[in-house]
Amino acid sequence: MATDVSAYTKPLPPITKLNAPFWEGTKKGELRLQTCNECGHQWYPPSTHCPNCLSRDYAWKAVSGRGKVWSWVVFHQRYFKAFEDELPYNVTLVELDEGVMMMSTLRGIDDKDVHCDLQVKVEFEDATDEQSVPYFVPA
C-alpha cells in the first residue's frame, strides 16, 4: 500500500545493526525471522542470541507470513497521539505458523467478524523509505 511516507507519524523502532535485515525484508514484502544456525529456533522481536541455545550464529530467513489470531483487543482509550485518529483500533496478537508470537494489527475485516484462531497472512504498509510495517489480513 503506497502512502505519503513523509506523513507517517506512528512510532517505529529505530533501525539498528541488529534489526536492519528485518526492515530490508519488509521493503521486499518478506517477513523475516532470525533463525538459529545451531538449533533452528526462530524468534521475534530481534535479539542478539538464540534464546534456545544462546548461539549468536543465526540467519534472517523469510517465513510463511501465515498464522492465526491468538487474540485481539480494540483500543478505545487514547495512549498515543499518533493513533488518536484511528480510535477505536485493533491490536492483534498473531501466532505465526512457525510458533512465534507477533504483535500486529488486523485489516480487511470488521472487528465484529474477527475471532480467535482466524487464519491470517501478512501484508506490508510503506512507512518510510527504509521501513514497511507488517500487518495481517484474513488468509
Binding site: 506512528k10 512510532p11 517505529l12 504483535m103 494489527t105
Partner: peptide, 8 residues
C-alpha cells in the same frame, strides 16, 4: 517499540 508500532 515493536508493540507501540501498532498502538499496543
Amino acid at each position: 517499540a515493536w508493540d507501540a508500532m501498532y498502538g499496543m
